[in-house]
Amino acid sequence: MLPIILMTMRCFLRDRILFALLGAAGLLLLLIPAMSSFSMRQVQELSITLSLSANSFLLLILATLLGSASVWGDIERRYTAGLLGLPLSRRSYLLGKFTGIAVFLLACCAILAVAGLAVIAIAKSQYPAASDPQWWVILLASAMIGLKYVLLAAFAMFFSTLSTSFFLPIFGTLGVYFAGTASQEVFEYLNSDIAENLSPLVKSCAEAFYYILPNFSAFDLKVQAVYGLPLDAMSLLGTLLYFLAYLAVLLTLSVWLFERRDL
């Protein structure tokens, strides 16, 4: 499996589009100190918000593109014919490919996180806030962003193993992203008094979706990072377990589907 991981990553490193994307993100980060100074009372907070949001946004694009293109692209360009003629199981191929994508995403996330810290330090020096930024919480929030997009990439790959075109992987993944980000919000709305008059059928449908879709709100530590709020270790651990369990189910399903597919 190691060779396929390395090959996947090598091909990413030689792809100019990805570097263009990373470059654009770098430029965006450079603008943050200037943009943060528009804030009256929370320059430092705004710089943290913007750098985490920029990180998240770039990873969304990367996870969607890389995850969607993974299997579907290899089939489309007929790389699979040669690859699967090797003594390589489809499971190793898929998992190796996914590991390559995941490592690449996490590496990008780490680079952007470190660049973000530098940018925050610059913004902070312009106008120090009452309290220093909680560097570790910011790093933790970045790590959670990384995990979230690894999960999203797994979704993209899942769609990619099903599909013969790029429509389903790309739009399916974006759909999952938006639904997964909003699901907690909708769930809380449904359980509030405002939604009392809603029909029970709609409610239970929405609830089913809430449990099936990935809950990306759990990975969102932005408020804690930006405003230095305390973190709950148990809920972090819970999120980590949720991530692992969800990922395992998704990958197992993907392997199961891919092994049954005619190429």
Binding site: M7, R10, C11, R14, R77, R78, Y79, A81, G82, G85
Partner: peptide, 10 residues
Amino acid sequence: PENPSLHGHM
């Protein structure tokens, strides 16, 4: 394979 296709970046 027939009409083989190989990874262009490698």
